[in-house]
Design a protein around this nucleic acid. Structure first.
Lengths: 143, 143
DNA sequence: CCGTTGTCTGGACTGTGTCCAAAGAGCTAC
DNA sequence: GTAGCTCTTTGGACACAGTCCAGACAACGG
């Protein structure tokens, strides 16, 4: 990773109130490079492959703090391992029942919370939507 | 459990295309009696306490087949153990960030899918909404 | 450059959920 | 009623995600 990018990532970490540590910079860079929705272990493998290995618990630690600070999103996609993504804009997910892949779906409102419940339950901070069905790729061969 | 209730539950199982077996009747009854959102192990404990113990893998098996048949809902509530509920009407959930309790939120539309994505991703069968925030009980002492 | 404080590390551990093959039970047809 | 096919259950072993902890370490402010 070049110096410039490391500095840029450091800046973003500090802007979100986090110390700019090596592991955090590496994890954030790895998640951006991978793109899409990734498990902690996919991030770990990526780091190992690219010559900056981290212990598993460090990857978990770092992802948790990044998610807490809002630098990374924890994608709600139902059961299974937690998925993280580097994307910043609020959006939703479509999960294919057949191949289990996760696709991004734009949020129609764009601001949180984008929906409000009919029932009065308390202070709603956000509303995450999970769409389920069959993705285009899986539906095609079925005809 | 009285004979009448067992017969009623058997009928519902068969209506949904499932064989009416002992474990299925017991699990369904337990989940209805408990009410709310329950983990597999809570159901298991309930069964053990009420004198009809089932092995853990049977509880998992049964809950999976009941959910597949639509007799039971697998409540999407984010990370953590899967939560099942006996409720039939389509609805959403509010999860408190503080106490992690799960509350039901009525679906404003009532029919599935109650929302459709802006992006074309495939065939959408349903849209599950998870509201997050602070519940009334947790918000009160915070002032 | 020092001290404070937050972070990282690595290993052990917990708990949820899956898999398998043998035994058992429900359902249909007779 | 019962024979037989098929689906279901069982129990144990296993896989995996995620947590916890205490000591070592590193970032940042002064």
């Amino acid at each position: 990773m070049d110096v410039q990018r490391a500095a840029e990532l450091s800046r973003r970490l500090r802007e979100h109130g986090l110390r700019a540590t090596g592991p955090r910079i590496d994890v954030l860079a790895a998640l951006e490079d991978l793109g899409g929705h990734r498990t902690a272990d996919e991030v770990r493998d990526r780091l190992a492959t690219s010559g900056r290995p981290l212990p598993r618990s460090s990857v978990y630690n770092v992802l948790t703090s990044l998610a807490g600070a809002g630098l990374v999103l924890n994608a709600d996609a139902g059961p299974g391992p937690a998925l993280y993504e580097a994307r910043q804009e609020w959006h939703h997910h479509f999960v294919c029942r057949s191949c289990h892949r996760v696709f991004d779906v734009e949020c129609l409102v764009g601001a949180r919370p984008c929906l409000t419940p009919g029932t009065d339950v308390g202070v709603v901070e956000d509303a995450q939507v999970i769409f389920r069905g069959i993705c285009t790729a899986c539906a095609a061969p079925a005809r």
